[in-house]
Amino acid sequence: MAIKTQGGVCDEKLYNELFKRHAKDLHNFLHYKYGAENNPGDLVQEAFLKLWDNCHKVEEEKARSFLFTVATNKMLNELSKKQTVLRYSQEKPKSQTSESPEYVMEEKEYMDKLQNALESLTEQQRVTFLLNRIEGKKHKEIAEMLGISRKAVEKRIYTALDILRKKVGDI
């Protein structure tokens, strides 16, 4: 008797395919939203395990939003949720540099300020802004991830930028 796979994602191949399709996006989304301290990698794993547990009930097309919702809810209920920390990668100092110490210092100051400013944004503002500016995600795509309208995404990006510029100051 053939097992009905229709109406679910219990097929291993399909399941793994879904992982390849969505895991990275989900990871980056969680990273920008909650920061590295909250282990976005583990959250992705947990979300996919949950998807496997519920594979009969979740349709292929709904899998993506299921994953995003599960991971977000998990963080909502997380008592040990840590404060969002976003680290920037520092460029390795060149052995010979033409940059003056003042420039290096100023640069570091700017990055620290920007880091604080980013961390001070709301989760929603930050994830929207960074997905757009760093990952180059389109408004429509972000709107689908967050389950909000494109207009709202646009507004959030603008507000986030406004806050950042106020906090970092115009240089």
């Binding site: 990273h31 920037y88 920007l114 880091q115 760093i134 240089i171």
Partner: peptide
């Protein structure tokens, strides 16, 4: 300046095969 600085905050590389 902002758009020059932001890439430094990019999420770490996600190794899909490893994680899978």
């Amino acid at each position: 300046r902002l758009s020059r600085a932001l890439p430094a905050f990019k999420a770490p590389e996600y190794d899909v095969a490893d994680e899978l």
